[in-house]
Amino acid sequence: MAAVSLRNVRKSYTSDLQVIHGVSMDIADGEFIVILGPSGCGKSTLLRMVAGLETITAGEITIGDRVVNNLEPKDRDIAMVFQNYALYPHMSVYDNMSYGLRIRGLSKEDISQRVKKAADILELSKFLDRKPRALSGGQRQRVAMGRAIVREPQVFLFDEPLSNLDAKLRVQMRGELQALHRRLGTTSLFVTHDQVEAMTLAQRMIVMNAGRAEQIGAPLEVYAKPATTFVAGFIGSPPMNLIPRDGKLLGIRPEHLEPCGEAEAMLSVQVDLIEPLGADTLVYGHIGDPGGNGGNGGAGARVAARLHASVDARTGRLPLRYDTGNVHWFDPASGKRIEG
């Protein structure tokens, strides 16, 4: 296992097309890092640069104490799990998992022992003779992980490994990934666009937007103190409400809004959409009557609120209040968080 560090890493394809604009991060030995961002933000490119599948235009990547910029993927001591699994279709599960070991010239007994052990962990022992096409999506996913595990690499790289699975299986695999990481403690980088995966798996996450790291931090910290309006809008479902107020942007999460009497109202929302989810109800609307109570700006802004299911939600006017301790402020021009 090893620490990984990114030093002002940049990637450009041509002189005027830069896709990664200088990302720096220190990843501790054994840490589980999630790289989160919308599609096209450069998260996969960043991971592939760590893997050695993309060249590094500028900056430095180290794994352990080696600078790996100019090393071939095979010399970086990493293993990668691909979104489409990338299993060798003409090889059995056993051969798929042992391919890398055979290339590295391990003894037959050693290979068989490692594969059996990984197959046990992943509950694949029954399927070792099968070809990938005879496996379900979840099993293929596990073979792909098994292929990474047997190598006992310094770092695991996951490129959206769960996005081809159905919702139920994804939740299950998420749990298995967590258990696996606890058991093996290998440094892991996990790319996803799914904020739930990021929140649940990450020890720390790096939120990316348009080739830049918007924020790096523990999931709850990122949730509690988003550094930019992008992070505020990307994490949380529905996303944080951003309401223009006094030349700044007031951020308030939907779950921090609660209905109240007219007298206490800090926001007055004209509700036009209601989504009852069972445990709670989401209401959407826009801020009405700019002159009214709480009407110091932001008229017309869209607002979502998460209300307890006991609240009888109706369309029309809804007075809302919030605890000022839950408010975030952002600079509208830069999108950056304003502390204080």
Binding site: A51, M80, F82, Q83, N84, A86, Y88, Y99, I103
Partner: peptide, 11 residues
């Protein structure tokens, strides 16, 4: 990705 997987596997 198959080729890339093989490259990472050391081939």
């Amino acid at each position: 990705s198959l080729i890339e997987a093989a490259a990472i596997d050391g081939a």
